[in-house]
Design a protein around this nucleic acid. Structure first.
Lengths: 191, 191
DNA sequence: CGCTATCCGGAGGGGTGCCTCCATTAACGT
DNA sequence: ACGTTAATGGAGGCACCCCTCCGGATAGCG
């Protein structure tokens, strides 16, 4: 399901020449870093600088700030949604929790991403769909097994978890503790 | 300025003349609006414009962006911490939940505030102390009464709640639903 | 090896926001 | 009422950022 034989049109088209593709990847990596550090308003010139390419190269690959932003986001989502398959054979509750922990790892430190998530856009909507397709079944399975409260939909869970992890926790142990509280709230009322 | 025995003077000094104080208040109100809409990187000139004062007036009252920002934050914290007293006579759990709902109302829509909360600063640290002094006892009382899980400290709760409410929920009903899940996680493990 | 389509980098014009400075205004005390 | 003085506001200098454009470099191919 996840390994598509042909790349979806949603994802930014990648250049074909080797050097161009190298720069493309470096830009996305740098953008992930800088957006993570400085928020969504980060300087594009700083991103190009850190990627070791000229500003012109950035603009050729990503005509506007939003394009770059979306490309980073799409990368995260691809990795995240692909990881859902690995968890299919765990027990329902453990599978859900495991996936949510990956969710934290992928989306957690990017407050810029969370910040922009609200703004409507074609790509973001598609990514939402993809995340829901990956995580939704895990929640429904846990609910069917009586391991998760039935009155929560997947959107609630996403907001619950991503809200908590949007902050940088100086102490990772605390992050897990807070996450555990939230997950306890996800269990059925009387167990 | 180390006069901390009176909590009133920890906060930014206010001008004494009537018109000056009017402008001061208008600036804070405008800043709250604009920071809420545009995030922490909002234009100071836009804030001055919306407050109906010149940019010079803004800079005289608040020498830098951070000063304005802190002033807005301090206002929120004052109102929030004052509200804790009203709840003293409710049942322990209800008092805690009630206060957390006010917490949401005051801090919830300001993603800019949440965003900057991480950055260390004297004023922010003082405000943290003030919030903890207001809300901490409510949590401890609920824990003593067996209404809240004992293995959560107040910092955990603050992060849990503020994380969730940092986003704008298009549907307030969903926000309450998500909050309810989190609060269920706060209850003792076996009830 | 040599050719060409493709890609690269960064200079530069336009725009916006930050902050200072000072001539002008108007609030307050008497 | 009137002088004193705090307070005002916006012009302007500076810095940074956005984005375009084009001469030079180079990967890939025959």
């Amino acid at each position: 399901m996840a390994n598509a034989d042909r790349p979806t049109e949603v994802f930014a088209r990648r250049p074909k020449r080797a050097d161009a593709r190298r720069n493309y990847d470096a830009l996305i990596a740098a953008a992930r870093e800088v957006f993570g550090e400085c928020g969504a308003g980060a300087s594009l010139e700083e991103i190009a600088r850190r990627a070791g390419v000229g500003i012109g190269t950035l603009y050729r690959n990503f005509p506007g700030r939003r394009d770059l932003f979306e490309a980073v986001y799409v990368e995260e989502v691809r990795a995240l949604s692909a990881s859902a398959a690995d968890l299919a054979d765990l027990a329902p509750w453990e599978a859900l929790v495991g996936w949510l922990h990956r969710f934290v790892a992928y989306v957690g430190t990017k407050r810029a991403l969370a910040e922009e998530l609200v703004h409507d856009s074609e790509v973001f909507r598609n990514c939402r769909t993809e995340i829901y397709a990956a995580g939704g079944p895990l929640l429904r399975r846990a609910q069917a097994a009586g391991a998760a409260r039935p009155d929560a939909d997947f959107d609630d869970v996403v907001r619950l978890i991503s809200g908590i992890t949007a902050y940088q926790f100086p102490d990772p142990a605390q992050r897990d503790r807070v996450l555990a509280i939230a997950l306890d709230g996800l269990r059925p009322p009387l167990r």
